[in-house]
Amino acid sequence: MEPEAASGWRRLGRLEETGVLCALGALVLFFSLTTETFLGRTNLIQVARQASDYGLLAMAMVFVLTLGEVDLSVGSVMALVNVATAVALREGVPVVLAAALGLAAGAACGLANGALSVVLRIPSIIVTLGTMSVFRGLALVISKATPIGLGDAARESALLRSLGREYFHVPASVVAMLIAGILGHVVLQRTVFGRRVQAIGSNLQAARFSGIRIVRYRLAVMTLSGAAAGAAGLLALAFLEAGNPTTGETFELLAIASAVIGGTALGGGSGSVPGAALGALILAVISNGLVLLGLTAYWSKIVTGAMIVAAVAVDYLVKKLPQRER
């Protein structure tokens, strides 16, 4: 029995996500002990849903960062799809068509980012720094800087209701994040596509010399990032039953932070989709826990930053432990 148990623990220790799991566990334990309502079912579901607001973006960002790129426009794409779809629904476009067009628009924004980066030979961080403003500006123009309510017909449609409801008490956006997390993990770690994304991020020259078509992967990953942002915009629209041009503001930072906290290398070459989901959960747990503790506005920002650093430090230490034992 003992050797099997030991190998089980070793396997757990070798998991990329062990460190971030420990950090999340430490935070959950802390808030469970210091607040009365943190561990309640309603609160935990709320935390998971709040994490899913930017969780999809974070998981797609894993692919982008692993490739060695950065996409700063995801929050703006989310807003653009959110309000554009709301406007389309208000104008009477059928719900399924509007949602499909919204998703396609998100993917198109991502493709445009990739194409600009490839054609102009500019790093994606610069391209998306510009398109971040362009897409946000388009969202403001389309919405006239005003929230857009959905009409009764759209609100009652089967598609929007299914995207905004709960399944066995689990919000649809959390279900979407779970499904995306599993798919994303399989694609990144178990497919040729994922391996090549990691190879490109690890060593661009070597990847090029080995015949990998860098341009195709760049376009594909940026399109994926845009599509994920579009999906996030649609889920926000379905849940809040209104489009809002402020949607997604600063979400690019949350997405990058979640991915990095979850173990994705900022320099490219490796990443963890489940880690990004856990990173998003860590950020949501901190926001939720500090409010439950009664920490008001001015102190919450200081403590939030400190807790993020602490969470990353726990992850780092846990990863270092097995190396020291050797």
């Binding site: 849903r49 926000a236 979400f251």
Partner: peptide, 8 residues
Amino acid sequence: AENTRNYG
């Protein structure tokens, strides 16, 4: 001031 986080 971000709408989805405001709700949360």
